[in-house]
């Protein structure tokens, strides 16, 4: 009994370490998760993240207005107030204009796809530098499910792997756990686009005999049943044919700038490009 009391910190920590290792092994086989505590944490944090993200947008939008106001000390009070109001309005309009542009691009992109798509806002980024994930403000109550594809007008963003009632987390294509079946658009050579720890991507498992060149665009094959066929993923930046294996690999620069991403589209059910539909008919 005294042994337990004397070593309770060590024993509790050892139990925690063992439990964590078991959790890692259990969740290591699939990127999809359904732990209740995780869903609870996500649900609690989502409104807070949404609020902080809104404040962040507001602050960045009015920052230039504040800087200009500080430089206008010499002018009279009425004029300064007037200038401040006008500049705030201008900044607000500029922000609205930029947002309009992004949403219009999203809408145009949405019209090229046949199926049920949902617009979502990015409200959080990954808490560490090792992984590449996003948090979006849509969850089960909006019809988002695990495994749903997440797209942007520029191309593929990633895949939903954890959903709570009002939020979800997205595994980006650049995460080292991600893998997407892809074609080289020019030659239809097939391979797998995987994320790397350096926030880039790599094209792997392409036969050595296939024609792949720097500058080639990679698109989704649609064979995984998750992403619509023909969605751009990225561009080949370097090719590696070293070694004697059957395959060659290539470095890929993702089409989407994940750091600048503010709105995305989430698929609900099967989505196909409209041009393909028309061809089929």
């Amino acid at each position: 009994m005294s042994f337990l009391r004397r070593n309770r910190v060590f024993l509790t920590s050892a139990f925690g370490l063992a439990l964590a290792a078991i959790l890692v092994v259990q969740t290591g086989h699939t990127p999809a998760r359904s732990d209740r505590l995780g869903r609870f944490f996500l649900e609690v944090m989502a409104p807070l993240q949404r609020s902080v993200a809104a404040v962040e947008r507001m602050v960045s939008g009015s920052w230039h207005g504040v800087a200009d106001l500080l430089s206008a000390r010499g002018e009279n009070v009425a004029l300064r107030a007037r200038v401040r109001l006008l500049e705030q309005e201008l900044d607000r309009l500029a922000e609205v204009g930029l947002e309009n542009g992004r949403l219009r691009a999203l809408l145009d992109f949405r019209e090229t796809l046949q199926g049920d798509l949902l617009t979502a806002r990015v409200v959080g980024r990954d808490a560490s530098d090792v992984s590449r994930t996003l948090t979006i403000d849509r969850g089960e109550s909006d019809g988002v499910t695990r495994g749903a594809a997440v797209l942007a007008p520029q191309g593929v963003v990633g895949q939903v792997f954890l959903v709570s009632r009002h939020a979800a987390r997205v595994l980006l294509v650049s995460d080292h756990n991600s893998g997407i079946d892809a074609f080289v658009q020019r030659t239809r050579a097939r391979g797998i686009v995987q994320g790397t720890v350096d926030a880039g991507c790599a094209l792997k498992y392409v036969k050595r005999t296939e024609d792949v060149q720097v500058g080639d665009t990679l698109v989704t094959s649609g064979l995984d049943g998750i992403f619509p066929k023909g969605m751009p993923i990225g561009r080949v930046t370097a090719i590696d044919k070293r070694g004697q294996g059957l395959f060659q690999s290539a470095d890929v620069a993702p089409r989407v700038d994940f750091d600048q991403l503010e709105e995305v589209l989430v698929t609900r059910g099967t989505v196909v490009p409209i041009e393909r539909e028309a061809e089929a008919k």
Partner: peptide, 17 residues
């Protein structure tokens, strides 16, 4: 650590460990 796992990566338990 578990809290961090909810918002980082896909492996549950990595940060808890």
């Amino acid at each position: 650590g578990y809290f961090v796992d909810t918002f980082s990566g896909t492996l549950l338990g990595l940060n808890a460990f």
